[in-house]
Write a protein that binds this DNA or RNA. Structure first.
Length: 151
DNA sequence: GCCAACGTTGGC
DNA sequence: GCCAACGTTGGC
């Protein structure tokens, strides 16, 4: 079992959107970064859990826990010229971008703001807190996970 | 392969 | 809206 943190902008797709999906399940499309792609395609496994992080909003922070319910498959939005995530250089015979399906598991009783994460002992190495980090998907250790869940 | 210019991210 | 940090692009 692995743990992750997945960033999303609530104005585009956040907890609120996920809650309205059938089975509270959705595909995680639009990742256009190779490092994050590799994790989606190769590393994330069914049953893994992830923190749903709201970014580029006020306040930023962790809102919920989601589960990976379908492992990496081709992100078809890359081939759709009408999609915001369209990538003209992407070739359907050699797919470049991948996605997973996530399902809502638990909403945090209390939203955990970024400022609180920064003050929390034991989270110094959490990737999202490191300077300049821009990856939309990052691994979380079991120890970090336990600290955050208990907040 | 180098690296300057440019675009994006995301906290504040 | 600002701007630091980073990834990508493309000329050479």
């Amino acid at each position: 079992m692995q743990y992750w943190l997945m960033k999303t902008e609530p104005s585009t797709f956040g907890l609120h959107h996920l809650q309205q999906k059938p089975n509270q399940t959705a595909y995680w499309d639009g990742v256009r970064n190779y490092q994050a792609r590799n994790m989606l395609r190769d590393q994330m496994k069914r049953g893994d859990l992830a923190l749903l992080y709201h970014s580029n909003c006020s306040p930023p922070g962790i809102a919920a826990v989601v589960e990976i319910v379908r492992e990496g498959y081709v992100d078809f939005t890359a081939f759709d010229p009408k999609s915001h995530y369209y990538d003209p250089k992407s070739d359907p015979t050699h797919p470049r971008w991948f996605m997973v399906d996530i399902k809502l598991v638990n909403v945090f009783e209390r939203f955990i703001p970024l400022t609180e994460l920064r003050m929390q002992p034991g989270l110094e190495e959490l990737v999202i807190l490191r300077k300049g980090n821009r990856l939309s998907i990052t691994p979380v250790t079991r120890a970090q996970w336990d600290i955050i869940i208990n907040l």
